[in-house]
């Protein structure tokens, strides 16, 4: 809720000691987040590299293994994350405009779509478990080259698992932000946490944008 105190006293409360003004604080926060995201690109990059090498080496087995994944559920999940990114972008805008109720609703909405994503992922993982597609002693592959197919599923679970951890962290961050927004923490231009958490959420969305075609749509179906 906007307060009636002068902007100067507000700014002195929300700008940390080491910054000249709120703009400098904001650009520092953004640069820091983008550098963190660059490290995240390389964190996922190792898995994407392994995927590239093994798809290059065992192309045909990867095509067959990929067909065992549920493209309807995977595609739906892509749409869910894309729409959640829309809500997140609108949430940052609501924070910029100091519209507290809208901000809380959009943050909770984004978190709920994150939960929908995780629920669909849980259904997929359960089906994989029932079908003996989880790598390990119970892994069963009727076709040729079971070891190579198992390698595809190692990569599938490694990549989607690491991504799912990121979504889970994101949901937690969004719910904490919603709670803080309820208390008016982001009033009067102090919306840095919302903005950089938004960058994180969009990044997680981008990772899935690559995971979906690479894992679910190997070769044509």
């Amino acid at each position: 809720m906007p307060t009636l105190t002068s902007p100067v006293s507000e700014e002195s409360e929300i700008v940390a000691e080491q910054f000249d003004d709120i703009d400098q604080q904001r650009s520092a926060a953004q640069l820091g987040m983008w550098i963190f995201l660059a490290t995240e690109v390389l964190f996922f990059g190792g898995l994407f590299l392994s995927y590239t090498v093994y798809r290059f080496t065992y192309g045909q087995v990867f095509v067959e293994a990929s067909r065992r994944l549920d493209v309807i559920l995977g595609g739906t999940n892509t749409a869910v994350l894309l729409v959640s990114s829309l809500l997140m972008a609108l949430a940052v805008r609501a924070a910029q405009l100091d519209r507290r109720l809208l901000l809380v609703r959009l943050l909770v909405g984004t978190a709920l779509l994150g939960l929908v994503f995780m629920s669909i992922k849980a259904v997929e993982y359960h089906t994989d478990y029932v079908d003996h597609l989880i790598p390990g002693t119970r892994f069963h592959w009727a076709g040729a080259d079971p070891r190579k197919a198992e390698l595809f599923f190692w990569l599938y679970f490694g990549m989607t698992g690491l991504h799912a951890i990121h979504v889970t962290v994101g949901i937690g961050v969004l719910l904490v932000l919603a709670l803080l927004a309820c208390r008016g923490r982001f009033a009067a231009g102090n919306y840095n946490p919302v903005e950089i958490s938004g960058l994180y959420w969009h990044f997680v969305d981008i990772v899935w944008v690559f995971l979906f075609p690479l894992l679910y749509l190997v070769g044509h179906r």
Binding site: W34, A38, V41, T52, V53, T57
Partner: peptide, 24 residues
Amino acid sequence: LLHLAALAGVMWLLILIALTLADY
């Protein structure tokens, strides 16, 4: 500055993949 930070991550990923594939 942000454009640079955003591109840096992508550039390093491309170097990682390009040099590895140059081997494989």
